[in-house]
C-alpha cells in the first residue's frame, strides 16, 4: 500500500465570475521513502496540490472532489483540529521562503521545542536536547549557541536549514516541500538539496518535491509528475521523463531548458503561454500550443495512457485506437 494516495483530486476556487478549477482530477501515489517530484510552470496547480495534501488550502479554495489517503486513512475531510495533529506529526512542510515560515518573534529553539512537545511526550529538557541534535544534523554550526537566536539572525540558507529541522523534528512519514530552494543562491541551493536528500534517506521519509526547476528534480526525485493547467501531463521515473519524454509538452519543456555543453543556436520553444484558469481550452488543455494536435485533442480530454515508452502521458497520441492518425 502506498504511503500517500491521491485519487481524482479536484481543487476549486469559487469567484464572482464562476468557479475556477485549479487542480482538475489528478491522481498520484507516493510510496514509503520515495521522492516524488511535481514539476510545472507557474499556474500549473502544483502548489495547490501540495496545499490540499497538507490541508492548508487558502480559502476560498476548497477540495471539491476526490480523496487523499495517508497510510490508508482519509485526511482530506478531517476537522481542523484533527488535521493539525497530523500535520507536523505525520506530514511536514517546507515552503519557499524560509523567512515567512518561521515566526520572527520567537527564537528558533523555542519554535522547535514547541513543535516537538506538541506532537510527542518528550519533556521540555529532552525536547531541547533533541532540537539541538537536529540543528547540528542539518548543518548549523555551534547549534547549542545558535539555539536562542532569532530567525533574522540567520542567513537565507541557514534559515532554510532551520525550516528543514522543524519539518523533520517529529519524524513525519511525508514531507511536502514546495519550492524549497527557489529563494536561495545556486551554491546554497546545492547544499540544501544534498541535505534534504541525505536526511530523507536516513530517516526513511517520503518527499513530495514541488518545483519549477527540472534540474532540482533530476537530481533529487525518484519519480516525477509533470503538471500542466491543473492536470498531470506525464508521469514516470525521473530518468524516463527527463530523457525519453513522450508528452509533447514535456518534450518541449525539456528542449527549452538551456544546457551547459549543448551548443544550439536556438532553444526549442513552445509557442504561447499556459492558459489562465478562466480560459482553459476544451479537449486537451495543451492542444492550442501542441505541434502534434489533431481533431480529437480539441474535443476530448485525455486521461493518463500508457505510452510506447516507460511513462504514462495524458495524450491521445498514445491511444491505440487513434494512434494511426
Amino acid at each position: 500500500m502506498a504511503l500517500l494516495e491521491v485519487r481524482n483530486l479536484r481543487v476549486e476556487f469559487p469567484t464572482r465570475r464562476g468557479v475556477l478549477v485549479a487542480v482538475d482530477d489528478i491522481s498520484l501515489e507516493i510510496s514509503e521513502g520515495e521522492v516524488l517530484g511535481v514539476v510545472g510552470e507557474s499556474g500549473a496547480g502544483k502548489s495547490m496540490t501540495g496545499s490540499a495534501i497538507i490541508g492548508l488550502l487558502e480559502p476560498p479554495g476548497r477540495i471539491a472532489g476526490g480523496e487523499i489517503r495517508l497510510e490508508g486513512e482519509r485526511i482530506d475531510n478531517l476537522p481542523y483540529e484533527k488535521m493539525r495533529r497530523i500535520r507536523g506529526a505525520k506530514i511536514g512542510a517546507i515552503f519557499q521562503d524560509p523567512l515567512t515560515s518561521l515566526n520572527p518573534l520567537y527564537t528558533i529553539g523555542r519554535q522547535l521545542v514547541e513543535t516537538i512537545t506538541t506532537h510527542t511526550d518528550l519533556s521540555e529538557a529532552d525536547a531541547r536536547a533533541h532540537a539541538i541534535d537536529l540543528l547540528s544534523e542539518v548543518g548549523i554550526p555551534a547549534a547549542e549557541r545558535r539555539f536562542d537566536s532569532y530567525p533574522h539572525e540567520f542567513s537565507g540558507g541557514m534559515r532554510q536549514r532551520v525550516v528543514i529541522a522543524l519539518a523533520l523534528c517529529v519524524n513525519p512519514r511525508l514531507i511536502v516541500a514546495d519550492e524549497p530552494t527557489t529563494a536561495l543562491d545556486v551554491s546554497i541551493q546545492a547544499q540544501i538539496i544534498a541535505l534534504l536528500k541525505r536526511l530523507c534517506r536516513d530517516h526513511g521519509t517520503a518527499v513530495m518535491l514541488i518545483t519549477h526547476d527540472m534540474g532540482v528534480i533530476a537530481e533529487t526525485a525518484d519519480r516525477v509528475a509533470v503538471m500542466y493547467a491543473g492536470r498531470i501531463a506525464e508521469v514516470g521515473t525521473v530518468r524516463d521523463v527527463v530523457k525519453h519524454a513522450k508528452h509533447p509538452y514535456t518534450e518541449g519543456l525539456m528542449g527549452s531548458i538551456p544546457l551547459v555543453g549543448h551548443d544550439v543556436e536556438r532553444l526549442t520553444q513552445i509557442e504561447g503561454a499556459m492558459p489562465r484558469l478562466t480560459e482553459i481550452p476544451t479537449g486537451c488543455a495543451f492542444n492550442p500550443r501542441c505541434p502534434k494536435a489533431f481533431d480529437r485533442c480539441r474535443t476530448e480530454r485525455p486521461d493518463l495512457l500508457q505510452t510506447d515508452g516507460a511513462t504514462q502521458a495524458a495524450c491521445w497520441l498514445y491511444d491505440r485506437e487513434t494512434a494511426y492518425v
Binding site: 510552470e41 527540472m214 518541449g252 519543456l253 527549452s256 531548458i257 538551456p258 532553444l267 509557442e271 499556459m274
Partner: peptide, 11 residues
C-alpha cells in the same frame, strides 16, 4: 519567467 517562456525570450 517560466522555462518555456524563457526560451522564447532568449531566442
Amino acid at each position: 519567467l517560466d522555462v518555456s517562456v524563457q526560451s522564447q525570450i532568449l531566442n
